[in-house]
Design a protein around this nucleic acid. Structure first.
Lengths: 228, 228
DNA sequence: TACTCGATTTAGGTATGCCTAAATATTAGG
DNA sequence: CCTAATATTTAGGCATACCTAAATCGAGTA
């Protein structure tokens, strides 16, 4: 029964799989080349190349039809969740154990996630008490890949004034993360939408404070919320 | 004064520099291609290629004359010491903070050393209290690259019975490391040489114990000692 | 001094993963 | 339903870092 060995998964392949996952390319939805190109900071041509490779590998990591987007196969999704788990555990570790400033954990985790062993993962998870959320409020996939469904919504989808709980903050832009930190905007905090400037941001207040904060559109786009 | 930027140092280049340092290619001594090839598990041809590259980079990382070996330039030595510091700090961290078994720290550190930031280094050094030695007994270079001179000798150079203190254990072979661990051979322990089997190993005893342990030549070669 | 053998270098080739420019497919508007 | 604008793919290149096979060098010995 000479089962041929699964071909190795490179660091780059991992990055692509994780990006597809985060952009929603599991559960039937498809992701476009352009969206991937933007997220990964490479040209669309490079995306096409890699998608062909991911589709051709054994087992196939994605389902891909040219000009019609990609989505993860079950093997691809499994792998992407492993990488995401690594990433978020490392972020939590850097924040909790090594006292990193929140806006620095992402870049470091982004590099390290490809190189830590299963043992490293196991040890930091144990040290942290098997956390369910990273410091940005994002859910950490379990070892078996299970992850509760995310019921949060984007602040930028809000059309009416109201009160919410901050669910999570996107970690990709350190600058925004720092801006939000100094304004007290972090997961779990209550956020009241006071005014909406169509496509130009929001006026909000935090907790029980009456102070009004102006958030740019870019800042607002990094915030996910839950209705109270 | 458009100073041209120093060209980037790749992960591979770091590996070569570190290998040259450890094989003694600082302080005037030269290292042969073959020795490097053996240590890095690549062919001699690959070594030649990389040495040419290291010699041609700005600033030059090594001095290299074909057929006559290499040695580190001051820039190369500085860099190699940085990488070695990373490596040994990470080993110490894995052992002390994450409770790794000693025989597993090397391989993990070998991968991670290339990817941690200055911040990561600074934080783990602080957390560990700026240690001077790694768990194998090797000296950790200071931030400025200074490192006390190593006055230890190889157990395999011992020709007469006598008593010594174990200085350090080579970390490159996990199997040997584990064998030595279960026999109680670790840095700081007293080791008595009882019998010498020319090129076939040693009979030793540990601490105040009378029990005689047989060490193979390979096991012995991993041990460095200090006269008492 | 010349020869031989081991050490080293050169030449040429592989794979990854990125790029640009040119070609082509899809989609939305008229 | 056709066309323009946009999205995507193809083709051809570059750099890194490794390999093998075929030269070539150099140190010790006859």
């Amino acid at each position: 029964m000479a089962r041929r060995p699964a071909n190795p998964i490179s660091e780059s392949m991992d990055d692509y799989l994780k990006a597809i996952l985060v952009l929603g390319g599991s559960e039937g939805k498809k992701v476009t080349s352009t969206a991937l190109a933007r997220r990964l900071n490479v040209t669309p041509a490079s995306i096409t190349n890699m998608l062909q490779k991911l589709a051709a590998s054994t087992p196939a990591m994605v389902q891909y039809e040219r000009h019609h987007g990609v989505q993860l196969s079950s093997a691809g999704k499994k792998r992407a969740l492993e990488v995401l788990r690594h990433h978020r555990l490392i972020e939590t570790f850097l924040y909790e154990v090594l006292n990193y400033p929140i806006e620095e954990v992402h870049d470091e985790a982004e590099r390290l996630e490809h190189f830590i062993s299963e043992r490293f993962e196991e040890r930091i998870a144990a040290k942290l008490g098997h956390p369910k959320f990273d410091p940005h409020g994002h859910c950490i996939p379990a070892l078996d890949g299970r992850m509760p469904k995310d019921s949060s919504m984007r602040l930028t989808d809000v059309r009416d004034e109201g009160t919410f709980i901050i669910d999570s903050i996107s970690d990709i832009d350190a600058r925004i993360l720092k801006v939000l930190k100094v304004r007290g905007i972090s997961p779990g905090v209550q956020l009241r939408v006071r005014d909406i400037y169509e496509d130009h941001g929001y006026a909000v207040s935090i907790g029980s404070s009456k102070k009004i904060l102006q958030l740019s559109q870019a800042d607002s786009a990094a915030i996910k919320i839950q209705p109270m």
